[in-house]
Design a protein around this nucleic acid. Structure first.
Length: 203
DNA sequence: CACGGGATCGTCT
DNA sequence: GACGATCCCGTGT
């Protein structure tokens, strides 16, 4: 337990101010190279964020909370930045987002992929993999499975010092040419928003 | 390797 | 009652 606590303090958890930024596209880009960490059932696992997508209620038809649509599911998107928004997709996959911006500004970043770094054996077990392959954590649904995240964690505050999920800065500085922007995936229905380059990847 | 379809269920119409 | 901010496996080249 002492070791776990030391690990916990080794790096700086992203503070509330990071997530309160009004510009969700900017936060989406800034989250590349940060580390998504879970401590679920007392076991750590983590990876470096390499793919994100931005969504916002204001003018973005691909966003669940488009036009400030409030439902039981989307309500959490109106919480203050730093809150987890996890929902079920296609009846099978649990997708993890971080809410951004101030309270009542519904915006979120979908974390789509990580490079696994900490406790890879546990992640392999959760995915029923025997050997490490890139597909272990490449994709929003499989990434959450590897990290042990599910919809039960929606609404969790990632900035609280004892939360089971958080994002931390391990001091990586990225050059602009290490990041690519492209259209978001799987939102063909979103008309004029389809081609917006709100998907970011770390090369 | 590209493509096609089935899985599976909460959410909103 | 239809449809996803997806994944995986099967088929065919």
């Amino acid at each position: 337990m002492k070791l776990l606590n030391n690990f916990n303090n080794k790096y700086q958890r992203l503070p509330r101010s990071f997530f309160l930024n009004q510009n969700v596209v900017e936060v989406s880009r800034q989250l590349l190279g940060k580390y998504l960490v879970t401590q679920i059932d007392g076991q750590y696992s983590a990876g470096k964020i390499i793919e994100t997508e931005a969504y916002q209620a204001d003018g973005d038809k691909a966003c669940h909370a488009y036009n400030n649509r409030r439902t039981k599911r989307t309500e959490v998107m109106f919480a203050q930045g730093g809150t987890a928004y996890v929902y079920l997709c296609y009846g099978i996959h649990h997708l993890f987002n971080v809410v951004t911006g101030p309270k009542e500004a519904a915006q979120a970043v979908l974390i789509r992929a990580i490079t696994p770094t900490d406790n890879i054996p546990l992640m392999l077990e959760r995915r029923n993999f025997t050997v490490l392959k890139p597909q272990l954590t490449a994709g929003p649904g499989v990434m959450t499975k590897a990290l042990g995240i599910n919809t039960a964690y929606t609404g969790m505050d990632l900035c609280q010092s004892d939360s089971k999920i958080w994002i931390e800065d391990r001091g990586i500085i990225l050059q602009p040419d290490e990041i690519t922007a492209s259209p978001r995936v799987g939102i063909d229905y979103a008309e004029e928003c389809v081609s917006w380059p709100w998907r970011f990847r770390l090369l």
